[in-house]
Measured scan of single mutants.
Amino acid sequence: TFYNFIMGFQNDNTPFGILAEHVSEDKAFPRLEERHQVIRAYVMSNYTDHQLIETTNRAISLYMANL
C-alpha cells in the first residue's frame, strides 16, 4: 500500500520523511487504501500545508512508477 511505501521514509530528513511522520500520526489516514485517487483526495481534503500536499503528489507518482 501507499502507507507502507511512505513509512519506509520514516526518520529520513527529507520531504518524504516529513510526510511519513505526518501520515504515521494521522489516525484517520487510509492505511489500507491502494487507489492513489482516494489517497490524493484524502490529503487534499485533510491537509492544509501546501508543501505536504506537493510532497504527497510526488510520493504517489514515485509509488505508482514502482508498482
Rank of each mutant, 00 (worst) to 15 (best):
T1M: 05
F2D: 01
F2P: 00
Y3R: 00
Y3L: 03
Y3V: 02
N4R: 07
N4M: 11
F5L: 01
F5W: 12
I6G: 01
I6W: 03
I6N: 00
I6S: 01
I6C: 02
M7N: 03
M7H: 01
G8A: 12
N11S: 09
N11W: 08
D12H: 12
T14Y: 03
T14E: 04
P15T: 07
P15A: 12
P15S: 10
P15K: 06
F16G: 01
F16W: 05
F16Q: 01
G17Y: 03
I18H: 11
A20T: 04
E21N: 15
E21M: 15
H22R: 12
H22Q: 07
H22D: 02
V23P: 03
S24F: 13
S24V: 07
E25G: 13
E25C: 11
K27Y: 08
K27I: 11
K27M: 12
K27H: 10
A28W: 13
A28E: 13
A28D: 14
F29Q: 01
F29P: 01
P30G: 00
R31G: 03
R31N: 04
L32Y: 15
L32V: 07
E34Q: 15
R35L: 05
R35M: 07
H36G: 15
H36M: 12
H36I: 14
Q37V: 08
Q37Y: 13
Q37T: 12
I39C: 02
R40Y: 12
A41N: 11
Y42A: 02
V43G: 01
M44I: 11
M44W: 08
S45H: 11
S45W: 06
N46C: 07
Y47P: 01
Y47V: 04
T48N: 10
T48S: 11
D49A: 06
H50S: 13
H50N: 12
Q51E: 14
Q51G: 11
L52E: 01
L52N: 01
L52K: 02
L52R: 01
I53S: 04
I53K: 07
E54K: 08
T55P: 01
T55H: 04
T56N: 04
R58L: 15
I60S: 01
I60R: 00
S61T: 13
L62M: 12
A65M: 12
A65N: 11
A65R: 09
A65K: 12
N66Q: 14
L67Y: 07
